[in-house]
């Protein structure tokens, strides 16, 4: 078991930009700042929930941390054998040998993340074979054991992914992610492609595995209700940057950034009308193009509390009164409304 105070992963000013190229000569016409200066740290054994809308860069951040993308700048530190290792610029070869087995990833759509041409056994065995962790009978036993761990049966290893339902496929993907006993798993929208009645099963499985094996999760999702349920801390992303971060319940009950408030307010609640919040904040407009973000606060053009300074100065991500961190000029002055404080019916500011 890792010491819970140990930082397992930390990023500093992490940036991943993509060049937009056009035309016959592939000239670079713009830069998409998908991830633009992210500082975050994840402690061993905790779940950090990363929430944001499509195009905010949350998946790119997940892929950059696992070095599927090469960062443009900043650094990623990852603890390997009790030593913080800067993995930002390690070669793929080096990563394979020293880092890969300690971090893994679960993807959104298990139909795409499992190779349909491979049996369940070869899917789950892939990491074990690649790291020469087991072979022959031992390999088969490990696969059987992993299948049991995720709630499937050993004889399922003979089958092919298409013979399973969506939830079961996701269980297979989870078994593969666990194969090398990693400490850290990036879960990139792991339940978004699943039916509502199966979603809870997979969330429960992920939480139970975390306890059982002391796993650390970066849990990426657009669904704040799901993120709230599985996370110890939440970071909210908007246009490539973190706008607010803090302990889960605090973020949901007393958000300190107007975007978090709007996000919470927009979530449709499956409750009867009389239990409903009385006011909903509906943001106007769309998320700006990440190739040309607004000059000041990135949320300013849609912010209902916008002042002149918001268009001019970029707010810093700094600690607030409530004990979380927010990037808003008025974080401490605004009385923002969250969900869950007194039933589902908070009062309006």
């Amino acid at each position: 078991m890792p010491d819970p105070d140990d930082i397992l992963l930390a990023t500093e000013d992490l940036r991943t930009h993509f060049a937009v190229r056009r035309g016959l000569l592939r000239r670079q016409v713009a830069t998409v700042r998908a991830v633009d200066g992210i500082d975050l740290s994840i402690k061993g054994g905790e779940t950090l929930g990363l929430v944001g809308e499509s195009g905010c860069g949350k998946s790119t951040l997940g892929r950059t941390i696992t070095r599927l993308e090469h960062p443009t700048g900043g650094s990623v530190g990852f603890r390997v054998d009790n030593q913080m290792l800067d993995i930002t610029n390690l070669s793929q070869n080096h990563l394979r040998r020293h880092v890969r087995r300690h971090m893994n990833m679960i993807f959104q759509d298990p139909l795409s993340s499992l190779n349909a041409r491979m049996s369940v056994k070869s899917v789950i065995a892939e990491p074990l074979v690649l790291h020469r962790a087991a072979r022959g009978k031992e390999l088969e036993d490990r696969v059987a054991q992993l299948l049991t761990t995720v709630g499937l049966q050993p004889h399922h290893m003979q089958r092919f992914p298409h013979a399973f339902s969506g939830g079961q496929r996701q269980r297979i993907a989870i078994a593969r992610a666990l194969a090398l006993q990693p400490r850290f798993i990036v879960c990139d929208e792991p339940v978004s492609a699943l039916d509502a009645s199966v979603r809870a099963q997979i969330l429960n499985l992920l939480m139970q595995l975390q306890q059982q094996f002391g796993l650390t999760y970066l849990f990426i999702s657009h669904d704040l209700a799901v993120v709230r349920h599985v996370s110890d801390r939440i970071a909210v992303m908007y246009l490539g940057q973190i706008v607010e971060r803090g302990p889960t319940v605090a973020i949901c009950q007393t958000p300190q950034h107007p975007y978090t408030e709007a996000l919470l307010s927009a979530i449709p609640m499956p409750v009867a009308r009389h239990e409903r919040r009385s006011k909903r904040i509906v943001l106007t407009g769309d998320v700006p193009n990440p190739a040309s973000p607004p000059p000041g606060c990135r949320f300013a053009p849609r912010c209902p509390y916008r002042q002149q300074i918001c268009d001019e100065e970029i707010p810093e991500l700094k600690p607030t009164r409530q004990g979380h961190t927010a990037a808003c000029h008025f974080a401490d002055e605004l009385e923002l409304v969250g969900i869950g404080k007194t039933g589902a019916q908070p009062t309006t500011a």
Binding site: T47, S165, G166, G167, Q168, D195, A196, S197, V198, R199, A200, Q201, L203, N204, M207, Q208, A225, V226, R228, H229, V230, S231, D232, T248, V249, C252, M269, P270, I339, G340, G343, A344
Partner: peptide, 28 residues
Amino acid sequence: PYTQGLLRSIPNWTDQPKTPLHSLAGAV
């Protein structure tokens, strides 16, 4: 029982985070 199960399996804003969710067995 299906409606009940479905509604109970949705994460609720008043539960304690990181507690097991009620879940419907099996898949469609």
